[in-house]
Amino acid sequence: MIGLRYFARKGAMFLLTLWAAVTLNFIIPRLMPGSPVQATLARLAAGGQTVTEATKRAIEIQLGLPHSSLWTQYLDYLVNISRLRFGMTYSITDESVAHAILAAAPWTLVLVGTSTVIAFVVGTLLGVYAGWRRQTRVDSVVTVSSTFFSAFPPFFLGLLLLYFLGFKYHMFPLTGGYTPGLVPQLTLSFLGNAVYHSILPAVTLVVTSLAGWVLGMRNNMINTLGEDYVLFAEANGLRNRTIALLYVARNALLPNVTGFGLALGAVIGGSVLVESIFGYPGIGSLLLLAVDNRDYPLMQAIFLLITVSMLVTIFLVDLLYGLLDPRVREA
């Protein structure tokens, strides 16, 4: 009944995709024209930085040495990432890549996690309502505004909010994840300060990703409304609320859940830009810092982290889907 086969198949798929993504992360820098290793070392030396052994090692792990075989490099790479050894970053003095990421990750996790969940729940509910009451005034208002906001690049909406609510009306702070001078700690006052700082970035992410959920769910609702089981439920005189929620929305939700992982990719992409605009101390800002400094080890490690966390989330959503749709459990 529980359909172990479904979960086993999804698990195997997850591992295979994980391996492919990790390997791709190894291949990408080696496909690039020129030798990033030489370029990086030259750039570091020119910048007057001392190239420590650790830095050099980090670059070698991530980008490969010209004189060792590709296979040895690959094995080294696998061993190192399995032990979370990413070497030293040279964007931040005396900091290892792993530490830098560890410090930034919670910020992004909370921001992106919360925004995604809020956008999914609110967007899906709005889509259910608009689809059920289609061709009404509420439906057209919801659909038209969702369409409009789905055309917004997240950074543009972020800049507008920053300008009007932050700069013009001083309702929100202009930059940062917390007021400078505060020490990050788990106290109520610090958390309150952090939440206050994250409102604008979160609103930006929610509004720009909300639209996709609304329109997607509305579409699914309209498609499901034409199903025979909905017609039959009406013929049997079920209550409107039962039909709307348990017959239409419950089935219309399934394709939206499948799409969750892909939507997450968009939100993560959006968060990179949003973090940069709001100076939010998360993974996105760190990635851009790495890009600005041509800090390839940090860049590669962040990309790997983003990819792996997406894969894990998609895997979890797949498992959830197995519980939501009785048909796939045995399939």
């Binding site: 025979d228 079920l238 749709d325 009785p326």
Partner: peptide
């Protein structure tokens, strides 16, 4: 009414028990 495509007349994500219950409760 009993529909032509009775195959698709049942909600795929609810058990028969629940669907009968829906009619009775309604």
């Amino acid at each position: 009414v009993v529909l032509q495509s009775g195959m698709n007349a049942l909600n795929p994500v609810r058990t028969i028990h629940h669907q009968i219950g829906d009619v009775l409760q309604a």
